[in-house]
Structure formats: C-alpha cells, structure tokens
Design a binder for these strands. Structure first.
Length: 429
RNA sequence: GUGCCAGUAGCUCAAUGGCAGAGCACCUGACUGUGGAUCAGGUGGUUGAGGGUUCGAGCCCCUUCUGGCACCCCA
C-alpha cells in the first residue's frame, strides 16, 4: 500500500463516478452556452511562455505556472488560463471571422499553487467570450449566460449572486476625488483588499498610498452606496438589459467588486455564494476592450468570464444539486452463466441482444448464480437473464427483474420486444 | 513561497510512553437454478515515509510527503 506511487500533488483522479459528475457539469455548460448561440472551441494545452509574458506577466507566469524546457531549450508552459490563447486565436483570423464572435470552451488548466479546498493544481475551467460588440447589452448577455447556468442547475438567487461593478465608474469617481489616473490601479487593488483586512490596517495602508483623510472618507462613502450605478448611463443600460434577459434577481450592483486582473476596462463582475460559507468566488469576468491590441491584433472589444469547476462543484454539493452518480449501472442487463458448458451459449445470447440495440453485460465466467446476482445487484443492474438447461431445451430465456424479484420465461424470438417493454416500464437510474 | 492543524485496516474512527482495536465494507458458509435481510466464521496493518530519544514509540523530538485551514494569488 505504502509502496503505491503517489499521484502528482494537486491532481485529481476521476473514477467513473467522478467523471460522470464532470460530464454532467460539462453538459449543463454546453447546453447553456449553445442556448445563446455560442460555438465551442479549444486551444492547445501547451503554450510558449512568451504568450503569457506579453500580457499576464508577473506572478501568474513566474510563480504559478508549470514551465519546462523542450528539447530545443524553449520554455513551454502548461496553460494557466485561456484568455491569451483566445486572444491569439482571434487575432490570427481577425479579418476572416464573422462578428460578433461568440465562443466557449471547457478544458483543463494548471497552476502551481498550494492546493486547498476549491483549488487544485490541475482543474477545469469554463471560458465564454463575446468579441466585437461594445454595448452594455453585450455585457448583459454575458452576465445573463452565467445566470442561465445557475438557473439551469437549480441554484436560486437566494443562494448565488452575480455582483457587478464598472471600472469606468470607479475611475470617474476616483478622478472626481482628485486621484490621478496613474494611481488608480493601485487604489483599486487597495479597495479589493478591503474585505480581507481589518479596518484599521486598511485605512493605514491608504495613508501609505498617499490618500488624504478626506479622500478615504469619500471612497468609503462610495463603497457603501449601492445606488451609484444609476448615475452611470452604461450601468443603467446594463441593468435594463439584464431585466430584459429575465435574470435581474441574480444580479446586483456592488461598488466593492474590483477584480485583480489589469486588463479589464469596463464592467467587472464575480459570482459569489450569498451566505459566504464558501468564500472563493464562483466565477469572474469583465470587459477587456484593449486586450487584442495589446497582444498585437487590431483593436477589438471583448467581454467574457471564466468559471472553475471546483468552487462551483462545492456550491452545488452544498445545496445538494449534484445528482447522485453512485450506483449508475454500466448497462441495464446482465446475462448470467449457468455453468462452464453454457458459457458460450450465454455469450452468444448477449451478442444477439446487442444486435437489437441493447447494452448488455456478460458475466465473464461460470460462477454460482448467487454470486452473479449479487454482482448484478451491486452494479445496479435492472434485469438478469438466465439461460440454463431447462430454457435451452425449449428455446426459452428467463428474465428476472431485480427491483421486484419477478421473473418469467419466454421464447428467444420475443425476447427483444419484451426487454424493450420491461426497460421502458422501469424507473430510470 | 510563509504560518497553523491533521494523517492508525478499503471507509469512519478508538487505543496514560507498555499485547494495535471497534463498527461498516469485503470473503466463506448456513442456501448445488436466484441478489438485497439475518446469523456464524474468516481475511485484512512496516500506525504516510525516514531518522532520533527511550528498557520500550501509534503517542515525545527532527526531517519529509500528503491533505485541510489562514496568508499570497486567483477559477
């Protein structure tokens, strides 16, 4: 046992049950994405490190990426995020694409961080983006898609909220207080920290940044005012759009939302669990109108978000919204084996039924029937089929319904029809 | 990368520095053409790994790995 080679730190093994859960999540994401007319795409998992150095820069690449040299000595990274890849893909075909471009993706990412609840080194992420439209209605569409997923999986507006702010609004506000635009990024980061620091330390830090006492008071007032969005034409239109999309109850204005990434230019948002028990944000995104130009393309407005699978799964688990994938049978029917001499007869029977379109499990060797039925029971199989000397003599098979214990015999010719009926009459797993 | 907590059977957990245990699970039988329930019996451990202190270590000390929590950062 102790000699087992350990899995790589921060990776997860997906046993059938867990893979079923992941695929369920994928299906929900695909369904919502497609319902808004978004197309699925995928990028490479390996990227040259320069791709990230150009934009993400600093910490994400240097500290939090898996990087290794290839045989030619070039530094390769396991992708820590998708946006740079997406920006490249769009830039490469910028003149051929039909706008607006609406794309989504769900795949693996890697970050070299300390694993903890809701965070691993290898994780899956949903990315969805809209390019080519600058309007608040485009922002509203992206946010509505996030709300659409919550609705689809059964999360209510009481349980999750999408908090929205506008970098433009914050910037205007700070400028009005006499704060130079060069300082505003720093101030934003300070605002972002507020929830994590105690009031005293937070205000002391503000003084260090050169803010005057009066400015600190004014910023605090701004951060406590949840109606400021009404002063902004963009946000007013955004919320009118959200209303029209039918998901206003999932979305709130929150002036404290700033987001870490530098490239956001307009709205920023993140989804949280309302009672705060799960402290990490579920998803985050915003508008990034300069990104494409920054990576060498023509200017092109974009808006989008990313959602990791781990925090979202925690939220679903907490609210008991994940289906139970525990006892899902791999096939509904098991063909048992009476004894060694009839093993091939059973295999043939199963093959015959498969040709009628049934998913069939063979018991692979002669064993006591009780053991075969126990196997069927534990696998969650619905129907066991017996083919013994009695049946064979009369060209019959016996069907046993495990949930009721009922069994009956019928001719082989009628088996397919009877099985269809029998399966249709049983509750789905 | 920093700090704190934890790791004992497949799982959940016991064991004052003194014989490593229980429940569940698993296997066998009661039941040679029939699962779940019940009863009886049985298998299962280098106490995460390595070192140290001690007559003696699951327990104390050091190192390390893994997980969890708080930083950091973010999905």
């Amino acid at each position: 046992m102790s000699s087992l080679i350990q899995s790589v730190k921060g990776t997860r093994d997906f046993y059938p049950e867990e893979l079923a859960a992941r695929r369920w999540l994928y299906k929900a994401i695909r369904s919502v994405s497609e319902s808004f007319g978004y197309q699925e795409y995928e990028g490479p998992y390996l990227e040259s490190i320069e791709l990230y150095a150009a934009k993400s820069g600093d910490e994400l690449v240097k500290e939090q990426s898996f990087v290794f040299p290839d045989r030619g000595g070039n530094l390769i990274a396991l992708r820590p995020e998708l946006t740079p890849t997406l920006a490249r893909m769009v830039a490469q075909k910028q003149r051929q694409l039909v706008y607006p471009v609406r794309w989504w993706s769900f795949g693996p990412f890697w970050r070299y961080e300390r694993p903890q609840k809701g965070r691993a080194r290898e994780f899956f992420q949903w990315n969805i983006d809209l390019f080519g439209i600058e309007s608040p209605e485009a922002d509203a569409e992206i946010v509505a898609i996030a709300a659409g997923l919550f609705k689809k999986v059964g999360l209510t507006p009481d349980q999750v909220k999408i908090l929205v702010n506008s970098r433009r609004l914050v910037s205007a506000e700070l400028s009005a207080l006499g704060i130079a635009s060069e300082k505003q990024a720093e101030i934003s980061r300070w605002i972002d920290r507020r929830a994590k620091m105690n009031t005293y330390a937070w205000e002391a830090y503000a003084s260090e940044l050169g803010l005057e006492a009066k400015q600190i008071i004014q910023i605090k007032e701004f951060l406590q005012n949840y109606d400021t969005w009404k002063k902004s034409d963009d946000l007013s239109r955004f919320f009118a759009g959200i209303e029209a999309f039918g998901c206003r109850d999932y979305v709130d204005f929150d002036p404290n939302i700033v987001r870490g990434l530098d490239y956001y230019t307009g709205i920023v948002f993140e989804a949280i669990e309302t009672d705060g028990e799960i402290r990490r944000s579920i998803l985050g995104g915003g508008r990034y109108d300069n990104l494409l130009a920054d990576v060498g393309g023509q200017p092109l407005p974009g808006v989008g978000f990313a959602m990791g699978d781990m925090v979202f799964s925690l939220v679903l688990e907490k609210h008991k919204l994940l289906p139970n994938f525990g006892n899902r049978p791999p096939a509904p029917i098991l063909v048992t084996v009476f004894d060694e001499s009839l093993l091939h007869a059973s295999i043939s029977l199963a093959a015959e039924l498969r040709s009628h379109g049934f998913d069939i499990l063979n018991y692979p060797e002669s064993e006591k029937l009780s053991k075969q039925l126990k196997f069927a029971d534990r696998m969650g199989i619905k129907i066991a089929i017996f083919l013994g000397p009695d049946e064979l003599a009369k060209n019959l098979i016996t069907i046993k319904v495990l949930s009721t214990g009922q069994q009956y015999s019928l001719t082989r010719e009628h088996a397919a029809e009877a099985l269809h009926k029998q399966l249709a009459g049983l509750p789905p797993s």
